[in-house]
Design a protein around this nucleic acid. Structure first.
Length: 151
DNA sequence: CACGGAAAGC
DNA sequence: GCTTTCCGTG
């Protein structure tokens, strides 16, 4: 029995950008999590959206290959992951080694077509989970800043 | 390990 | 803007 997450298919299209933008780390992480052959390396585990990097050296190596950075390691990769905290794409699961958690609704929102966003279930879910603290502008800014609308 | 500032690269 | 690199701190 495998953990399944209700990501829409388009959420798993890291290289769908027609502008040939560079792949982002969180796209890459999702890509690995999607593939069963990497379950010994990185896998969904625990809470909804939570994942464990089982083999940090290997994940770093694979990321380094993708970005043509042969000297990539977990120290550097994890710094990049930490930059996601303020962007609310990820946060750390404290006390659990190599364990992070996607802010699921945010991640999906980032990929959501802007025209449908206001009435999207993800927008409503976002406000629900955050107690309505997040402002609409903030979410729109995040979408724009990620240039996620490759449609 | 995990965090985050600082600077540099692209 | 998104890392990559380096590193002091807890």
């Amino acid at each position: 029995l495998k953990a399944r997450f209700a990501f829409p298919d388009w959420a798993y299209k890291p290289e769908s950008s027609p502008g040939s933008r560079q792949i982002q780390l969180w796209h890459f992480i999702l890509e690995l999590l999607q593939k069963e052959e990497y379950q010994g390396v990185i896998a969904w585990q625990g809470d909804y959206g939570e994942f464990v990097i089982k083999d940090p050296d290997e994940v770093a190596r694979l990321w380094g290959i993708r970005k043509c950075k042969p000297h990539m390691n977990y120290d550097k990769l994890s710094r990049a992951l930490r930059y996601y905290y303020n962007k609310r794409i990820l946060h750390k699961t404290k006390g659990k080694r190599f364990t992070y958690k996607f802010n699921f609704s945010k991640v999906v929102l980032v990929n959501y077509p802007i025209l449908d966003m206001a009435n999207s279930p993800f927008f409503l879910a976002q406000n629900h989970f955050n107690g309505g603290v997040l402002k609409k502008n903030e979410q729109i800014n995040l979408i724009v800043s990620n240039s996620a609308l490759d449609y």
